[in-house]
Every structure is written in C-alpha cells, then in structure tokens.
C-alpha cells in the first residue's frame, strides 16, 4: 500500500484530520481512502493531475459537497477533534470557521465595501464595520488600491484584485482555516505573485489548504504537499487517491513514490 500515512509533525497542533475519507457522486466513487492531517498555521498544497479528486477532498473540509445532492461522504473528517459530519454539526456555522476562495474570482455584484460587510453582517458581527472592512482589505493587500472607491462595484476591479477581494471577504469573518481552490488559475503572473505573497502573510494567522495545478506555486508557497493521482476503474470512471504526503521539499526533491517522481518531473499529468 502507498505510504499515505498522515504527515507526522512534531510541534504544532492538528487542525483538520481526514480518516478513510471516501467521496461518492451517486454510485461512482470519486475519491478513496484519504488519510491526511493538516497542522496549524501551515500551508498545505494539493497537487495532482485533473480528475484526481483534490478539489473534491478540499470541498469536504467545509462541507460544500453538501450542496450537491448526489454527493456522499464516508469516513471521517475532524476539525479540532470534532467530527464535522456528525449529525449535530451545523454546516453553516462550520463554513464561517473554514473559509473558502474559489477558482474564478466571484465577488458579489455589490460595492467593494458590501462585499466584505456581507459575511460579517450575516454572522452577527457587532464591532465597527468600517474598521473591519479596512482591516480585511489591508490584510489582503488591497487597501491601497481601493481605499478611495469602496462604494464602487467589486466587479469593476481587475481579475487579480477581485480574487484578493474574495480573500479579504473570507478573512473578514476570522476563519481558522482558508481553503483555496486553484485561486490563481484565472490570474496573470503578476496577480498570481501578489496572491502568493499574500498567502505567505496569511500563514502567520491562518491554516491554508491550496489546490493548485502549478507545481512551482506549490513549491513556492507550501510547507507540506499532498500528491493525488487518479486510477481508472473497469466502469471507466476515475477514482482519486492520495499517493504521498510530506514536507514540500521532500515531495519535490526526494519523493518516496515513483508516481510522485514522475509527476513532478513532468512525465505525466
């Protein structure tokens, strides 16, 4: 069997732990037997070829898969030792603690200010909204670019600014974890660089899981890297599984699995 044991980590606490995670869409299994520990204040990159289930696994962590009627999750995911799929867990409350940034920037068609304030308001924020908006935009390295046009539409920003606005929106509700699903795939290289620098900043306060197709990006921003692969079944579907999970240097310089070696050296995928 593969060496997909959870990554041992000496010092920091485990925030998220997947155990024997299986995801089904209808009767098709999309992901099998993922075991994975995410420790506090690290950046974890999920890499692998298309269809290997990395986004599917990511969406299990904040139960976004609940929104797809046919999706079913087996196994367990614990968030600070609480099973997030337990019947008494409220997915809405969970999502306010585990934020998400999507592949394509999806600001709300409202003002920049409202984009940030919305999440805070629905989560019952009692503090000073103006301060929160400024703080969140500063953390997302967007404040200087938008401070004079907070009343303007979020859609009027460039793609890279929109994505940073989405990040600001996510951190405005002080999540503990931020999930990023290929956040730079729709951005130009300069915007990508800004988002990557931002991830380095945010690491001090948040735990970040980032799905990426860009291996340079994974090696630049992440502390740990999980490599997923897909195998075809007799029925013709693909099942994703975790091949190897280790510190990023190990994955990129001295991977234990041959598949990982082949993937990172560009021989497939």
């Amino acid at each position: 069997m593969d060496s997909n044991t959870p990554l041992p980590n000496g010092t920091s606490e485990v925030v998220l732990r997947a155990k024997k995670l299986n995801v089904y869409y209808g009767s098709n299994r999309a992901v099998r037997d993922v075991d994975l520990d995410i420790s506090e204040n690290t950046v974890v990159a999920f890499i692998g070829p298309s269809g290997c289930g990395k986004s599917t696994v990511l969406r299990c962590f904040n139960r976004m898969n609940d929104l797809i009627a046919a999706a079913r999750v087996e196994g367990s995911i614990t968030f600070r030792d609480d099973d997030i799929y337990a019947p008494n867990v409220d997915a809405v409350e969970l999502r306010s603690r585990i934020g998400m940034v999507f592949q394509r920037p999806n600001p709300f068609p409202k003002s920049i200010y409202e984009n940030i304030a919305f999440g805070a308001r629905i989560n019952g924020y009692k503090g000073n909204m103006d301060e929160l908006v400024e703080q969140s935009l500063r953390k997302a390295a967007l404040w200087d670019e938008v401070k004079d046009k907070l009343k303007q539409s979020g859609l009027a920003l460039s793609g890279g600014q929109q994505q940073r606005l989405c990040i600001a929106r996510a951190i405005a509700i002080s999540p503990e974890v931020i999930l990023m699903d290929e956040p730079c795939s729709a951005l130009d290289p300069i915007s990508t660089l800004k988002v990557e620098e931002l991830i380095q900043e945010l690491k001090q306060q948040y735990t970040i899981i980032i799905v990426t197709h860009n291996m340079q990006q994974a090696s630049r921003v992440s502390d740990h890297t999980a490599f997923y692969n897909a195998e075809a079944t007799e029925k013709g579907n693909k099942i994703g599984y975790l091949v190897e999970y280790d510190r990023t240097e190990v994955i990129f310089q001295n991977p234990a699995q041959q598949k990982t070696q082949e993937y990172i050296s560009g021989r497939f995928g």
Binding site: R95, R104, N106, F108, F118, G119, I122, R169
Partner: peptide, 17 residues
C-alpha cells in the same frame, strides 16, 4: 451564476440569506 450562491454559502450564509 451559481458561483455567487457558492460564494455566499462559503461565508456561512444560510439558504435564505
């Protein structure tokens, strides 16, 4: 667009919100 619904849910909004 569904991406807006997803964006809302991801912030901890309920269906009605």
């Amino acid at each position: 667009p569904d991406s807006l619904r997803q964006g809302g849910y991801a912030l901890g909004a309920t269906r009605w919100q």
